[in-house]
Design a protein around this nucleic acid. Sequence first.
RNA 1: GGGCCCGUAGCCUAGCCUGGAUAGGGCGCCGGCCUGCGGAGCCGGAGAUCCGGGGUUCGAAUCCCCGCGGGCCCGCCA
Length: 759
Amino acid sequence: MGELPYTRDIVGVKKCITEALIDILSGEVDISPERIRRLFEEQRIKITKTPDPKFGDIGIPLHPILYMGHIDRSRWVEIGSRIVEKITGREHIDKCYISRAEFVNGYLNIWIDYKRLLEKLVENILLGKLDEMLRSIGRGVKVIVEHTSANPVHPLHIGSGRNAVIGSIYANLLRRLGYDVSERFYVDDMGRQVAIMIYGYKILRENNVKPRRDVKIDHWFGAVYALTNILIEKRKLLRKLNLLEEEFTAKLNELKDRVRKIYGESGDPHTIQLLTILENLEAKKEFIHRYDEELARLRNIFEKLHDKKGLAEYVSEIIGYINKYNGLIKELSTYTSSENKLAIQFPEIYNVLSREIKDPDRAERGIDELIHGYEYGDRDISELFREATSMVLEGFKETLKNINIWFEGYDWESDRRILEYTRMVVEKASKLPYTIIDGRAVIVDLDKAAEEHEYIRLIFGGDKPGRVVLRRSDGTTLYVTRDIAYSIYKFLDLGADKVYNVIAHEQDREQKQVRAILYLLGYRDIAENLIHFQYEMVHLKGRSMSGRRGIYYTLDELFRDYVKTIILDYLDTQLRLGRRKFNYDELRDTASKLAVTNIRVLLSSIDPKKVLVFEPDKLREYLYGSWITYTFVRLQGILRRYLGIEPLDEIVELKTRILNVYHSIGDDVELSVEERNILEKLTDYGEVLITSADYMEPNKLVEYMNELGMMLNRFYEKHPVIGEKRESLRYLRIVIVTLSLLILHDLFNILKLPIIKKI
RNA sequence: GGGCCCGUAGCCUAGCCUGGAUAGGGCGCCGGCCUGCGGAGCCGGAGAUCCGGGGUUCGAAUCCCCGCGGGCCCGCCA
């Protein structure tokens, strides 16, 4: 990608003008043609759209040339008018679709001949030249886009949704550009989180608790995971609290003794205050709650005692304890509040787990055993893991299918081949000169490796590469180890030439470490062609998400909320317009499709590298998807009525008939601003696809779609199409509508938005 | 402490890589247009210290430096 700069300019206007200007300018200014050509190629001089139609359609700032050629400002007008004269000469006018030119303040402004532009667009879109050009870009190169890859321990939430949508759109965009794309989901079933869920699930099974039918399977397992985790963490916290309390009591007593000893019966009011508070604290420690008030009082007294001997130290220690204590209590409360919610929703899970999980150490040991057993192929344990994670995955598939996402393949971390590669990675890495072997643990010191390899320094930039543990002391491997193995698998076994990993920005370092180690292991091609497609998180306003605590806004929920919002919103506007009768089933069906569109558009419309802040309560403000669908439907309606065919069902027929319409346009038409804008926009289409792929910015597609949509709304609000009396104008508008529809249709396909014919 | 990313109207966002004319949209707000290819629309209006300060340049939202604010990462977690 990126190597065909001029194919982006599908109409060729820019190229043509560039060539003409190189010729003309080198004749006017004392700069060699080669140098001017370089200025264009390096984009020091850019051919851009003008900010206002009164400046023409295309503007070229010639200032760099004028300054470089030492042309005094007083002579600009004279030189400018000669440039204008030359560029509007016969040959250029014809070749470059120029209709007129002007020189203003160092800018060369050019007016485009839109009838010629239309001719080119017809050729590109109706006769398939654009298609041919786009398909030739990828030339069948094999690309893997790995995305979503959520831990199978809770339902997909809105963050996973962003990943999934971005990944699926990007994959589809690459397909459109002629790449041979495989979308893959990496099932991370060997991590600690899964083992925690399995630990809980195993207990439930032993107590005959089975997944409930009335709850979607991944949501049920989400509760199992969260409750198991919460119970273990809570018990650990309680233990910490107890320990802290003991130390705290000891310290309190020490301080009390000391106070009595120093001040005895002196009757100093601060001392009495202090003793009172200390006694109160001692009594209170049996009750679990926070000591905010006491903390403030102690600080106060502490200040007054400041200069008195020996006490300051004690008091500040006490304050330290209280701070620590408050912190723990706060943490505990976040667990207990979700625990309570889950206990009400899933009593069958809660009752068993809260009874069975008492000793956190035992639980940790059990989890470690599960991890070990799974990695070393214990049959019963493996079956349990597979059974549970497969069920969760079924839940994922259902959610994803709903929003038009599916995969060429699911690659299990526990796959035999990947595990073989994992062992090989550990083995090979053990022999590296930068590797530290500590018992069974294998640790690669990338800091040291970076000293000797420039490649690694380049990967990390100013960051410290750090040490990477590939195998724990207990002999099990880590996520990063399997990730390295999976990367090898993608290239060697799946035959990828290039791999895009759509993975959150927060994993940037891990991804760099993977590449660095691949490089050290001798897989330089793999390291080079493994691309981290970063995207940022989704933040919910006013809510925080935590899978560990079972708090999340799921994709399933988002879908339901959209359906509701769309229907209610629609009813609102229709009622205002006086309609009174509606068909619920039809409405629901349409709303479901629009929900898909809105979800996909919402999650892909923002630059992936920006944090997406989202307010579930204000869904009605995120309805771009509905809006563009209406425009799309309207275009179809016009053509359906005019041609008497279902336009998108009979595209070949549509194209041939519109070609005839095009040839019937007379010479007498003048294009309006709205029409010219649309043609210009359509001209950009190919370039938008390519740059959006190059820079990994699927949001550019959505943006383009919105802009085209807005232009179309303005256009047919102002100009009748079928109702236009003048024949040539009517034909022209029909052609514009068709070209726009075909481009929108193409975009809907790339973005995988449901194709709706009528609403 | 080190690294990556972000900062543009009340809110969201484009433009930044590759400097160029009046910073483009959307939501919300105010005012108009409701029967004519499906009005989830159209037209008009108010609303911006482009986070701050320096520098480079004929020209800076854009490039460089120094700050400030926010997110994320620096685990024998994933």
